[in-house]
Design a protein around this nucleic acid. Structure first.
Lengths: 220, 220
DNA sequence: CGGATTATTTTGATTAGTCAAAATAACTGT
DNA sequence: ACAGTTATTTTGACTAATCAAAATAATCCG
């Protein structure tokens, strides 16, 4: 059985590699997992030995089919658990990430299937992140962000990447949830400011970094 | 934070010591945790250093107040999770023990409180085991068992200790659940046999060991 | 009492995961 | 092209948890 650390490495590589296809450099992986680079290298070699990823020395790692399958299963657990915590236990979406980070390693496939059924087989978690299917299909549509989309157009928020509790609390208070409609009034890359306008005509300023973590689609 | 291993040691000591009061010998502890005795000794010394238990060399261990508090919290998680799995997710009571064994270490106090509320603050888990209160009170009434009670009297099953899936499946099929009413027709300690009679007059034979894990009270 | 049995502790190794810091390779820009 | 910077790997050490097997203490009985 994969240990918790192994599951975390695989999941993180999946998230850093646009669905497991791209090569992830060791530095990025180590930083994301908050370990020193040498630790990531050591683990990469071990996981390569297990056939869960390919390690191209001095370049990075890429998941094998088996590694990807495992990683998707962990991600599915994470996102379904988050959905469960919000929908069933009525927790705040800012808190659920940390909880799911532990629960994803303790929930069996059996329990997960029942949670999935209880929730009515959701396809998106509370942040709008797609939930991988039981058999490893992951909807990874590429969306524009508030930092990159055209200004002036009517938009709908589809997803809020960035899981920090602080940011999510701020987003909640500011009405920036999946489903919210708005548009970008103005964007100034020099000052790093993005000005949003809500449907009620109120405005809100955001830094580009924050704006980049909010994915949007043109309003239908 | 206590590691998973530490939580398991504390919980096991609690269960082996009638609520944390009695001294548990190392052999019993090691056997229950399926580790070699030396391992249990090593851990006992470490936990004594942490102030979670007292280690009386060559005698055994006893929980301190702090150790007991921690152990009760783990046990509360275990039993509430089991209840949740049966009540909310409709799992079979034979499966839930193994699941709870992992989940008890991943569920936060926050999530637990919400599960507790969702279930309506149950006092017993699906096996009839008492659920410790949030502040560490544990109802530990002493019951007779089918191996020790008087024969002939009308009884009600209150609790099924013994968590193995095999046994629980058998109990389920035989109608031996908490709440079931029956009596002991006959008990032969030489042959090790206990003969039960259900309310519909059907009978069932059980070994004394199995009978000892079914707790009963006189029918009201 | 004292030898045999049984329980417990000690000692020495092992594994997984980690860090610190030295060594090495690759890339960058003039 | 080469010196400097940056990224990666290697090496050596540490911690938590475990096992195997030797050493030691306690208990039981004839």
């Amino acid at each position: 059985m994969a240990t918790i650390a192994v599951e975390n490495y695989l999941k993180r590589i999946l998230l850093l590699s646009e669905g497991g296809e791209e090569v992830v450099p060791m530095g990025a992986l180590a930083a994301a997992l908050e370990v020193v680079p040498g630790t990531a290298t050591a683990m990469a070699k071990a996981l390569a030995g297990e056939g869960l990823l390919e390690h191209q020395p001095r370049i990075g790692v890429r998941l094998t089919a088996r590694g990807r399958r495992l990683a998707l299963n962990v991600l599915r657990k994470h996102r379904l658990v988050e959905t469960f915590l919000v929908e069933t236990l009525k927790m705040d979406w800012a808190e659920v990430h940390a909880e799911a980070e532990r629960l994803e390693h303790a929930v069996s496939d059996e329990v997960l299937d029942r949670i999935d059924a209880l929730l009515g087989h959701p396809r998106l978690d509370p942040h709008g992140d797609p939930i991988p299917s039981r058999h490893g299909r992951l909807d990874s549509q590429v969306y524009a962000t508030l930092a990159t989309c055209a200004t002036g157009r009517r938009l709908r928020i589809v997803r809020v990447t960035q899981q920090s509790a602080d940011f999510l609390r701020f987003a909640e208070e500011s009405g920036l949830r999946p489903g919210t409609e708005l548009r970008v009034d103005e964007r100034n890359l020099t000052s790093g400011l993005v000005i949003l306008r809500r449907n009620d005509d109120s405005t809100l300023a955001l830094g580009v970094a924050a704006a980049g973590s909010i994915l949007v689609e043109p309003r239908a």
